[in-house]
Nucleic acid binder design. Structure first.
Length: 369
DNA sequence: TAGCCGTGGCA
DNA sequence: TTGCCAAGGCT
């Protein structure tokens, strides 16, 4: 099998690795979690950045990474954090199961590994939120182990290098076999980052800069003129639409203007996050119809004109927003579920779709002192 | 195994 | 405006 795979390469693995590392050394982005060339990364920072970077762009991650390290400088600090503080700090970054897993992982390392990350892939894989890619990346970048970190960048680079037409995700297996061949004994962590840097900066999904590629004419897709169709990615199904109602439940108290927030269940969409109470989000297009809970029928109800639109990974949502003004001492629990009153001026840590609801309401509200 | 799980930038 | 898709993992 090794012979078959290596014969698919048009240059020796050692030469390809050397050319890639030389290209990386000649210039690469300085990223907050990235060690100097030839050095090892701090395991805590490498792990946290890798989890944040799952399906997320570098530009989106940098401010969150910086904020987390300022607030929780060590793994032990993070492990001791309150759940709600971490969820709030993660708000806006998306894929919120990662935030729960980051906390669970930090606590597991403290409880089961004396506060230090294990160095081998098998042990890392047992930790929450660490899969095949992240385990290999941490092991190579933070501990210098010779492991192959195969992410979307590497899949794309290898698919083009081989000009392999196998559709994703089946091709991932081949990408791994080839990458294992390429990882050098020396500097495996730099190799992992160099391969991803190549995918991000040169071998881009669209408009690749083949003239700047260190692998040049060793790339079979470049020679064949098939770079644009590698990797072979099957078309995605169209996104269905859903609609529903979000309730902005507010009251005036001597302490100020407050709104009712619920916490969503840990599992599922926006799991564990603060949110406004909502109706079910049902399939279909168009303006949702307003269904008020019976227990709220005596309160002042003001629907907003424009629905909030938001696109999730697998569906698009139109949310009708309804203001419900309740008396000072009223309890919204029966109508909208258990929750907490939060001062409107102190609303933060909401997932983006809920922050869109907040902004929609605030736009129609007179400014307050 | 394939569906679920966010968000923002870009062409 | 619309679709694509980014340093994946979980179930």
């Amino acid at each position: 099998m090794v012979f078959v795979v290596s014969s698919a390469l048009s240059a020796a693995p050692t030469e390809l690795a050397a050319r890639l590392l030389a290209w990386y050394d000649a210039g690469h982005r300085a990223l907050p979690w990235r060690p100097e060339s030839g050095g090892l990364g701090d395991p805590y920072g490498v792990w946290l950045s890798e989890v944040m970077l799952q399906q997320t762009t570098v530009a989106a991650v940098i401010p969150y990474f910086t904020k987390f390290l300022e607030r929780w400088p060590t793994l032990a600090d993070l492990a001791a954090a309150a759940d709600a503080d971490v969820m709030t700090a993660w708000a806006g970054l998306g894929y919120y199961s990662r935030a729960r897993n980051v906390l669970a992982c930090a606590r597991a390392v403290v409880a089961e590994h004396e506060g230090r990350f294990p160095e081998d892939v098998a042990s890392l894989r047992t930790l929450p939120g660490i899969g095949p890619y992240t385990a290999a990346a941490v092991s190579a970048i933070a501990f210098g182990r010779r492991e192959a970190a195969v992410d979307g960048n590497v899949e794309r680079v290898v698919a083009r290098l081989l000009d392999d037409p196998t559709p994703l995700p089946v091709f991932k297996k081949t990408a791994r076999l080839v990458t294992v061949l390429l990882v050098p004994e020396d500097r495996p962590g730099d190799f992992a980052q160099a391969a991803m840097e190549l995918g991000a900066m040169v071998c881009r999904p669209r408009n690749p800069d083949c003239a700047a590629c260190p692998w040049g004419d060793s790339c079979r897709a470049r020679v064949a003129g098939t770079v644009a169709v590698r990797p072979n990615r099957p078309p995605k199904a169209n996104k269905p639409h859903r609609h529903g109602v979000a309730f902005w439940v507010e009251r005036e108290t001597p302490q100020g203007h407050e709104v009712w927030l619920i916490r969503r269940p840990d599992k599922g969409l926006l799991g564990g996050m603060f949110a406004f109470p909502c109706s079910d989000w049902v399939p279909g297009d168009g303006m949702p119809t307003l269904m008020m809970p019976d227990a709220a029928r005596n309160w002042l109800v003001t629907p907003l004109n424009q629905p909030v639109h938001h696109v999730f990974t697998h569906f698009a949502l139109d949310l009708k927003v309804v203001r419900v003004q309740v008396p000072d001492l009223a309890d919204p629990t029966t109508a909208f579920g258990s929750g907490v009153w939060v001062r409107v001026g102190a609303l933060e840590g909401l997932p983006t779709v809920m922050d869109k609801v907040r902004r929609a309401v605030m736009t129609g509200l007179p400014p307050r002192p």
